[in-house]
Design a protein around this nucleic acid. Structure first.
Lengths: 352, 352
DNA sequence: GTGAAAGCGCTAACAC
DNA sequence: GTGTTAGCGCTTTCAC
């Protein structure tokens, strides 16, 4: 028997009721005499009948499907956010459809179309084009078509496109980070890795500068090396440059280094070891993301941990609130972070 | 203008053709006079019209959608396989729908239903219930309903269910591993981590025993510690136990330790360092998975690398071959591995 | 409470 | 080549 072919009509016929009645027990939207309901339910069970989500979506207009575009699910960050979204969606009776863009803008635009074809009820975008400090115009245009009919919720920004944003609160993260560093007597602060045209990196950088001004920290130009990327290899290069700059120009070695990501920190750590610079005795090292590895390297590295559950929930709840049009939704929301202090910055420069 | 509501009828009307003609240019399945085709295409462009995949799927029976159940996409292994599948599917004109089971058998069964409701053309399952040495009966039953109408392709096994299997060739991996260890004069081989009711672990274990017999290696009972799991914490416990066993009973320290996973190896490495056991001088350490961290720890750890691209392709190609019923498909396929030798085993015990 | 019938947006015979 | 028509499998008025 090919189960695929059985429909509510088959169930209806065998139960001696009309298809509408079967539909009613399926949707549970109207009253059906318990006797008939039972009969229908038994048959559904018997044939392992699964109503077609296609046909449902066609007549219903509600698919209960949220499309998610991620930059790359192999990246721990996106995987965590995605899972949080999936769980939040499940709880609300929604299913989630994941597509990866791999940093390819053209592909990303195609993914928007793909999701529109699937008639998703909303689109959540994690990274990619929405990470850019200034939104690509062609992408904004493509996104505009989307937001014409369904809501978009993104982790970054989408300039010129009516959409919702839920972001990691990097300002607050930087506050905590700097406070921690200052409490341990670090005054010269370097920052390495990332790209300034990425919104989160830009924000971190700007906020660090503001804090430096306020607390009279030394974040001189030479200490800042925000370019080139987020990988371990990039971290190696950035750290080598910083070290050689210190050596060449005779400026003092920074007390602490803020790596824009854990990957960068790992690269930096390798270089520091190679040059016999002790962490944290000679220099403290902190970073963002708090991937598992940071606990395992030597020394373990202080990192900013994200609350993925909350991020996922806000993303999904925002989407669903729009879909189901309940009340007004905040255009911009933030998710707070948590600093996990480990060996790499657990050293008070004043006392020693 | 709400783009969602425009249909081929709207396009047809404005183009002065019939809906079928619009459908024809959409599917590109039949000839349409180029003049009309152009007109239709322009309108599609103008309104940014996206044909409903729902309606298509309903009339067509082919959704070009493959459901994927993964144990946990946050795990690097599954993320890599998933991405490989997504890419292979994309190339073949298919979209992929990911659901995570998080090791919850009941949820996993629900996911099967969910995918059936979505009328996916096939289901690929990565880990979870298909990893079990002996398939859970209730899961086999649920899967049977599925395979009644669509093919299932899994990375493990599915006893009593007609399905296709694509597996990492752990035998070959173990061959290479043991060969490498023997070439460096390691004769006493330990193996830690994992659970014997997991098929890949069981296979590794069995094959190691066979190789030990063939090459006269010492893999005595006390060296084998296959239970309890795959995490770093488990690795710590397993390694502590092995060490204390050596101390207590006076049996010789093994020459090499095979960790069932990189996580286990990381845990073991911590313990070895703590006990001042030098790697690789005192003992060699090798493992499976080759996650990025293995390159970054000290010493870097030899690990078995998987060819995710090929695995993903075989998984998807198998599914599609079944869907499109072209030729016969192998019920069981293997994907070869590659040994990446690093510091942790780069030491010849004979020479020193 | 329940059935009949229309309709969701497309594809695919089938005619012409 | 192209239009007409009949579904695909549901949900949902609208009567009764």
């Amino acid at each position: 028997v090919d189960d695929r072919n059985i429909t509510i009509y088959d169930i209806a016929r065998e139960a001696g009721v009309s298809p509408s009645t079967v539909s009613r027990v399926l949707t549970n939207n109207a009253n059906v005499r318990s006797e008939k309901r039972k009969k229908v339910q038994d048959l559904i069970e018997k044939y392992n009948f699964k109503p077609s989500a296609l046909a449902r979506g066609l007549s219903d207009t509600k698919r209960h499907l949220i499309g998610i575009i991620a930059a790359d699910i192999r990246n721990t960050f996106y995987a965590e956010v995605f899972v949080a979204c999936e769980k939040a969606a499940e709880k609300a009776g929604y299913t989630v459809l994941l597509l990866n863009s791999f940093g390819d803008l053209e592909l990303e635009k195609k993914l928007l179309s793909k999701l529109m074809e699937q008639r998703v009820d909303a689109i959540i975008q994690l990274g990619g084009a929405v990470d850019d400090l200034v939104t690509d115009e062609s992408y904004a245009e493509a996104a505009s078509y989307v937001t014409n009919s369904i809501p978009m919720v993104v982790t970054g920004k989408l300039e010129g496109v009516p959409s919702f944003q839920v972001r990691i609160n990097v300002m607050q993260a930087m506050d905590e980070l700097v406070e921690h560093l200052m409490a341990n007597g670090n005054e010269r602060i370097a920052m390495i890795g990332g790209r300034k045209n990425v919104i989160s990196t830009y924000d971190k950088f700007q906020h660090l500068k503001a804090l430096a001004l306020r607390y009279n920290l030394d974040c001189r130009e030479e200490y800042i090396n925000n370019w080139s990327g987020y990988t371990v290899a990039t971290g190696v290069i950035a750290m080598e440059e910083l070290l050689s700059k210190v050596e060449r120009t005779g400026i003092p070695m920074p007390d602490a280094i803020i790596a824009i990501s854990d990957q960068i920190a790992l690269g930096a750590l390798q270089v520091l070891k190679k040059h016999k610079v002790r962490v944290p005795q000679d220099v403290s090292l902190v970073s963002f993301d708090n991937i598992e590895t940071m606990e395992l390297v030597e020394p373990s590295v202080t990192s900013v941990d994200y609350d993925f559950k909350t991020l996922g929930e806000k993303l999904v709840d925002t989407a669903i609130s729009c879909i189901e049009q309940r009340g007004s939704v905040n255009l911009l929301q933030f998710v707070d972070t948590r600093l996990v202090v480990r060996e790499s910055s657990d050293y008070n420069r004043r006392k020693c």
